[in-house]
Simulated assay, not measured.
Amino acid sequence: MTLATPVFAQPSEPAKQAEGASCQAEEAALERDMDLARSRGQMLRRRQLAETLASLRTRCQASESPQSRAARIEKLEKEIRALRSELEHAEEQLRDLRKERP
């Protein structure tokens, strides 16, 4: 008795590559939208886009081959630097608004 594994159990390599490219394109589009929202002072919109980006990254990471530990660490450090920069910018805007007279 021979056991056969279904063909559809694992996506083919070209399908994985296409899915990875799609994830990268969606991620780039979301990052551009976030930059635009930030430049327009739309912090709520930017935060919503960041949440969408986080869920996209989670979904894409689950479907791609495992990354090396160092690459994941580097990616998270980059994201933390970007968020800190954004926080500093928002705090600066808040200080400026508090300085203005009504």
Score class of each variant (00 low, 15 high):
1 M>I: 09
1 M>V: 11
2 T>P: 03
4 A>Q: 13
4 A>V: 12
5 T>P: 01
6 P>K: 08
7 V>R: 03
9 A>M: 04
10 Q>C: 05
10 Q>R: 13
10 Q>G: 05
11 P>F: 00
11 P>I: 00
12 S>T: 12
13 E>W: 03
14 P>F: 01
16 K>W: 01
20 G>C: 07
21 A>S: 09
22 S>V: 04
23 C>Y: 03
25 A>E: 06
26 E>K: 07
27 E>F: 00
27 E>K: 05
33 D>L: 08
37 A>N: 07
37 A>F: 01
37 A>H: 05
40 R>W: 01
40 R>S: 01
41 G>Y: 00
43 M>D: 02
44 L>T: 06
45 R>N: 07
46 R>V: 00
48 Q>A: 06
49 L>S: 00
49 L>N: 10
50 A>G: 11
52 T>C: 08
53 L>Y: 02
54 A>D: 15
54 A>Y: 12
55 S>M: 15
56 L>S: 05
57 R>M: 12
57 R>N: 13
59 R>G: 06
61 Q>W: 09
65 S>V: 09
65 S>Q: 14
66 P>Q: 14
66 P>L: 13
67 Q>C: 04
70 A>P: 08
71 A>C: 07
72 R>H: 11
75 K>Y: 12
75 K>S: 15
78 K>H: 12
79 E>Q: 13
79 E>S: 12
82 A>L: 14
83 L>Q: 08
86 E>G: 08
87 L>F: 09
87 L>Q: 13
87 L>W: 13
87 L>S: 11
88 E>F: 06
89 H>W: 10
89 H>Y: 14
89 H>T: 13
90 A>P: 02
92 E>G: 08
92 E>Q: 12
93 Q>W: 10
93 Q>V: 10
95 R>N: 10
96 D>Y: 03
96 D>A: 15
98 R>T: 11
99 K>H: 14
100 E>L: 15
101 R>S: 14
